[in-house]
Simulated scan of single mutants.
Amino acid sequence: MPKVVDHEARREELAGAVWRVALRDGFPAVSVRTVAREAGWSPGALRHYFATSGDMIVFAVEWAVGQVRRRFDALDAARGGAVTPAAPMGILEQLLPLDANRRVESEAWLAMVGNAHLGADLREQRREIDRLIRHVVRTVVRQLGDLGRLATRRDPEVETARLHALLDGLAVQGIADPPGITPAGIRAVLRQHLDDLAH
């Protein structure tokens, strides 16, 4: 009988190799060659699942989005859906390179932004990620209003755009080599910005 191949399990195996390379060497080091070597596969065998580095970027970003969504769900479950004073900061921290995993997620996002011109899949994924981030930021601005921490003369849509831009900038500076800002610095800038919105 022919051997039955579990293609989904193979993709999961390769996903593990993608993230091991990314965590160890940074996301720019992810390529068909480096991932194949990490997984113990030949580049030709890997190309049955990911024909190009762009395909791996798409897969990696999809995985990262799933991780972020799971963290949001866990935060929401922990507070029972209630808006607490710590909620806005806790939510936004999930989008920033504050530890090794989130740094690689930010590197994957930046790689996707830089390669979005290479294909329709990457362009659509970039739009999807931007929509997700904008939705999260809009939710945080609404929470600040509910907590009485958004001044009445502030335009929520303008503040959503400003905060989204700030997050993008902090993510880029946080993953620069050498980093332009430390995790403690990222938290301090973000906390100051949220505090300023009350005035």
Rank of each mutant, 00 (worst) to 15 (best):
Y49N: 08
W41M: 07
Q125V: 13
D155P: 04
S31A: 02
L132F: 15
R149A: 13
G26A: 07
D73Q: 04
P179F: 03
R162F: 11
S31Q: 02
M56H: 10
L190Y: 09
E62Q: 15
L190R: 06
P28C: 06
L150M: 08
V58D: 00
H193G: 05
D73S: 05
G148S: 10
S31M: 01
V141E: 00
T152A: 15
G81K: 06
A87Y: 01
F72Y: 07
D76L: 12
M112T: 04
R33P: 02
E12F: 03
V35H: 00
A151I: 14
L197T: 14
V137S: 01
L167S: 05
V61S: 03
P2H: 04
H7R: 14
E105Y: 13
Q173S: 09
L110P: 03
G80P: 01
A17T: 04
A39N: 03
D177G: 04
Q67D: 07
R33D: 15
R71H: 12
V104M: 12
L132Q: 13
I186K: 06
E12A: 10
A17S: 10
E12G: 03
D195Y: 11
V113M: 06
Q94F: 06
V30S: 11
V136L: 02
Q125L: 15
Q67N: 07
F50G: 01
R10I: 13
A184E: 15
G26P: 02
R33Y: 09
G145A: 14
F27N: 02
D55P: 02
G119R: 04
G54S: 13
G185R: 03
A108N: 02
P179C: 04
A74R: 13
R24K: 02
I91G: 13
I175N: 04
T139C: 00
H199F: 10
T160V: 10
F72L: 09
R154I: 04
L23K: 10
W109I: 05
A184T: 15
L95W: 01
R103C: 04
I181K: 14
R149I: 01
T52P: 10
E124R: 12
P183L: 09
V158S: 10
R123A: 15
E13F: 05
M1H: 00
L98T: 11
V140P: 00
E38A: 07
D99E: 13
H7Q: 14
A39H: 00
A9E: 09
E93Q: 15
